[in-house]
Design a protein around this nucleic acid. Structure first.
Lengths: 185, 185
DNA sequence: GGCGACCTACCAAGTGGTAGGTAGAGTCGG
DNA sequence: CCGACTCTACCTACCACTTGGTAGGTCGCC
């Protein structure tokens, strides 16, 4: 793996556990095995690195969701599988989705980073809206609204589970959403 | 207002917009009108200040919810009014609930602060569970599970609305939860 | 006189970022 | 084939600034 890739990977991990402010060039460099000034050879500034991390993050999410849709055609099954994508972050050492960090760090985040992180939410909501529409039980506007609700509720479940470091809490929250009808089309 | 009170109030505001890491003694002191070293006369350390802020935060939330229950006896109306308590933070300059910051700053938060912030979630969930039980349409365990789901989903809606700085998004998310049956007993 | 509330002046650690240098791999004219 | 050149990918050494925290002093009030 090239240094650039290693930096991106390490920065992503840190961003998902400590946010933008938690990214520290000296620590990052140590993980990669270079000196901190060398990072500037690959990324002109911390903000630029964060933009690259966030962009790759949503691109990866979009690819994952597409792959899910290709493997499985039943909208109900897809909807049911959606929270699993958020579960993975918790499985990965109790990490959080970047979108949630943006909400927390909203005041301090460079605008360019905000744009990329919002793209992550957009990608998820668009996929959910399309999947809901495929189940064709609601109008396009209702699908969009419901998609946002599912996204927000799932993020909230991830948030609460992380703050208790308890992944089973995430599972029971999602189950309750399902029982209440939030995850159904 | 005493200096101690002023410090607590200012620290609470900052904590709700920039988190624990965002609390800065020099900035805080300036807002209060004293020098930063003087804060140590009232609070022995940053962690102690944060504990005091978080404790007052959940005590205040508990008092608010109690007052709501006293003014209104209909459980359905109370449930419907619950998200309003989260809406207030957004109204107050797009601020966030302290519980959400805890999830984001989980790795760096002193344990004593975590305990107090978790108490906030506990207070909310307990109130929701009791209100759901009063509507007596579900068993105690189901009430508890549903209470957690309502809390998590509401926090998620607040999170998403903040990251778009759009309070109407919060309102439509809550509406969608309602339509889906999440906010009903 | 002692105590509460506050101050000035400092320290040490951490952090983003810059200046300027170097080793090695390729490139190219003669 | 060779020396000069250039480019990449790093390095050491530094700076400016922020931040939590400490030492020790001042001042007014009971």
């Amino acid at each position: 793996m090239s240094s650039r890739e290693a930096i991106l990977a390490a920065a992503k991990q840190t961003a998902q556990s400590r946010g933008y402010a938690g990214i520290n060039f000296r620590e990052l460099a140590e993980e990669v095995g270079i000196k901190h000034a060398s990072i500037y050879h690959h990324f002109p500034s911390k903000a630029d690195l964060a933009v690259a991390v966030a962009r790759r993050y949503w691109e990866n999410a979009a690819a994952n969701l597409s792959a899910m849709s290709e493997r499985e055609s039943d909208p109900a099954a897809l909807l049911s599988a959606f929270p699993g994508t958020f579960r993975q972050s918790l499985e990965n050492d109790n990490r959080l989705c970047l979108g949630s960090f943006m909400a927390a760090e909203y005041d301090d985040l460079p605008d360019a980073v905000k744009v990329e992180v919002q793209a992550f939410a957009d990608v998820n909501v668009a996929w959910l809206a399309k999947t809901l529409a495929d189940a064709k039980r609601c109008s396009p506007e209702k699908c969009e609204a419901k998609a946002r609700a599912i996204f927000a509720a799932t993020a909230g479940a991830q948030l609460m589970a992380r703050s208790r470091a308890d992944i089973t809490l995430f599972d029971t929250l999602i189950d309750t959403y399902r029982t209440s009808g939030l995850l159904e089309p």
